[in-house]
Nucleic acid binder design. Structure first.
Lengths: 337, 337
DNA sequence: TTGTAAGCGTTATCAT
DNA sequence: ATGATAACGCTTACAA
């Protein structure tokens, strides 16, 4: 079923069918109707490859997600869902590339096979070879997250420094004097994962401002690691009365650790951090946290990308979001004594 | 950067470059090396659209997921992750189509634009127009889930009837005499969502076998609905001592409902059901449940699809999985009195 | 208002 | 062992 078939059945030339579909040239009502009838009957739809070849664009964008082996956090899932939704609204398809490293074949295909008109990159490191490759390939792209050199690319990101700082101030206001930061995994932070570093910076700065002490810990991205981390923390630093975290995946484990130690939240211990919005509300108890509007971020990333695809020479735009801390049930005044 | 450019720089014809890459014709070592050097230097990679147009296949598969607006369950996420991973292993790209209904443009494009070589369909209804459309389009596809007519398509699915039945028997063995089934949402079940219906069937059958009573409830797919559902259940049916559920997303809310009613799990109340494996382990308390091996299912679905793409005339294969109930901490003997 | 034809980048069938 | 060339299905500049 191709355009030639439609054309001959409708008794017109192929170009007339093409123009009838695109509207780029006027077609008489009679022929248009004849063509449309044939199309409806046969269920014709232009071949995407032929169109892409001719037009030089694919109407597809690439979404580069962390490798499938690593489970996505709720926040990352929110990004994926909203990017996909935004793409659908713009009649674009989304090609998923689960690639972390540099030698990933799926990423290579994205890069230089002309498969996509642009890409959205997630989980960016401070130094990220994928960013350089995308720049080299002259493929328009937008980061959800950014590298150390903020102005080398277009991105939208959460201001982890500010947001963790807000968490610390909130805890300090409640009287907490010893606070722990539970960061993402050692590997990720060591690999230069931006949010991990910025969270630590914000943590340190806020502690200094308030003149209080804190300890920062890395923690694997799952519940088991969270449990282990909380247990160790309570054992080695019994003076700590509150945790701020950017590690969503560890939270269930952290809570279990507190529970096993006989600590009730928020009576004996406070927890806060930065997590995806819907998740904060579903947590038990509902989590006092900076709610990251994953939905907005995905949508805005898509807008930025569409802008770059339309005009690759526009200056890079950078959007930094610092959602305020929403008060819910997981933080409370430090326990006397 | 196209094959012609490479050819002229290497001083050979385009066909020689093509053959050097594909290996479908012997090329002298000298020229192959010359060509490879140019390719390495310029970072050439065949244009996907041109290749797809010529070869009649795209090396891409479509993954039809529930609309992005609805949040995916952990189990569904497991499917997506493992399908994407399996595709990457086979050097295939994955196009994501968030479409539930029939008139979804993204689904239309998948269907008849020649964008994909095959598709994997999730969240299938007993009567599902998408299945008919795919059949009509002669596009190879595999379902994770299946319609009422099992033999009209190729699929892999969880045997919800058996698995819920196992849960009921387990609870009955523990002495529970009044058990509730918490199903997926009213809308989904009313729309003919297979797992919802089969779970209910298995529930009813097992109750009959054990000569005990149960009530079945629909519940929205989120924590808020779970809370509401549990609250209502405890109010209207205080004799109920255990829940079996296929509604992962409602579980946190259900637990909160029990907590608010002062019921401890598993001392006062038992919970079990069918959920994704990793999630069962992270639950508090760890969930006694039939652990769905989402990883395997995605991988097997991919294998089935590759088989169908390779030979669309192979008879449909149907795989039904009934993972056994794994004992963890959320079920216990019914409380005396 | 409509038709003709070139060309997008590949692969594969002829030749040589 | 390699080169010339047609064809895949589409869009669009040019003709009529």
């Amino acid at each position: 079923m191709n355009i030639g078939e439609i054309a001959s059945r409708a008794g017109v030339s192929r170009s007339t069918v093409s123009y009838a579909l695109s509207g780029k040239r006027s077609v008489s009502d009679a022929t248009r109707k004849r063509i449309q009838d044939v199309i409806d009957e046969l269920g014709y739809r232009p071949n995407a490859a032929a169109r892409a070849l001719k037009e030089g664009r694919t109407r597809t964008i690439g979404l580069v997600i962390p490798p499938a082996s690593r489970r996505l956090t709720h926040m990352q899932l929110g990004f994926v869902a909203s990017v996909v939704e935004a793409a659908a609204r713009a009649d674009l398809d989304v090609l998923l590339s689960p690639s972390g490293g540099d030698h990933d074949r799926s990423f290579e295909r994205l890069l230089s096979g002309g498969r996509v008109d642009g890409a959205i990159l997630m989980e960016i490191r401070l130094e990220d070879s994928r960013v350089r490759r995308l720049q080299g390939a002259k493929l328009p792209f937008v980061g959800i997250g950014h590298t150390a050199r903020a102005h080398e690319m277009c991105w939208i990101d959460v201001d982890y420094a500010t947001v963790i700082s807000q968490c610390v101030h909130h805890l300090a206001d409640l009287g907490h004097q010893r606070i722990a930061l539970v960061n993402r995994s050692v590997e990720l932070v060591a690999a230069g994962y931006g949010p991990g570093h910025r969270a630590r910076d914000g943590f340190t700065a806020a502690l200094a401002q308030r003149g209080i002490q804190g300890i920062d810990l890395e923690c694997g991205d799952d519940a088991a690691a969270g449990l282990e981390c909380a247990t160790r923390l309570l054992r080695d630093h019994p003076e700590v009365t509150a945790i701020a975290t950017i590690n969503e995946a560890a939270l269930p484990g952290i809570q279990r650790g507190l529970e096993e130690a006989g600590l009730a939240v928020p009576r004996d211990f406070s927890i806060t951090g930065v997590v995806g919005r819907t998740w904060a509300e579903e947590f038990r108890p509902p989590l006092t946290a900076a709610d990251v509007p994953a939905q907005d971020i995905g949508t805005q990333a898509m807008d930025l990308l569409l802008e770059r695809i339309a005009d690759p020479t526009t200056p890079f735009r950078n959007i930094l979001l610092a959602p305020p801390v929403s008060l819910r049930g997981s933080t409370g005044p430090v326990r006397a004594g």
